[in-house]
Simulated scan of single mutants.
Amino acid sequence: MKKWTALLGILISAQTLASEPRLMNQAPDGCKFIKQESCQTSRSKGVLRCEKWHKVRASKAGANVIVIVTTSSQQSGGAIIAGALYTSNETTMTADYYACPTP
Rank of each mutant, 00 (worst) to 15 (best):
M1K: 05
K3A: 14
A6H: 01
L7C: 07
L7I: 13
L8I: 06
I10H: 00
I10M: 13
I10G: 01
I10S: 04
I10T: 07
L11P: 00
Q15A: 14
Q15L: 15
Q15Y: 10
Q15M: 10
Q15H: 05
T16I: 09
L17G: 09
S19F: 11
R22M: 13
L23P: 00
L23G: 03
N25Q: 14
N25V: 11
A27Y: 05
P28G: 02
D29R: 04
D29W: 04
D29G: 05
D29Y: 04
G30C: 04
K32S: 08
F33V: 01
I34Q: 03
K35L: 08
Q36V: 09
E37D: 15
E37F: 09
E37K: 08
S38A: 13
S38E: 15
C39V: 09
C39W: 06
C39F: 15
S42A: 07
R43E: 15
K45Q: 10
G46W: 01
G46H: 01
V47T: 07
V47M: 10
L48C: 00
R49D: 05
C50W: 07
K52R: 10
K52D: 13
S59F: 14
N64S: 03
N64V: 01
V65W: 01
V67A: 05
V67Y: 10
T70R: 11
T71R: 06
S72W: 09
S73E: 15
S73Y: 06
Q74C: 00
Q75E: 14
S76R: 11
S76I: 08
G78P: 00
G78H: 05
G78E: 14
I81M: 06
I81W: 12
A82Y: 09
A84Q: 12
A84T: 08
L85D: 14
Y86P: 00
E90A: 10
E90I: 10
T91V: 12
T91C: 06
T92I: 15
M93A: 07
T94C: 02
T94L: 05
A95L: 10
A95G: 04
Y97P: 00
Y98S: 03
T102E: 15
T102S: 09
T102L: 14
T102Y: 06
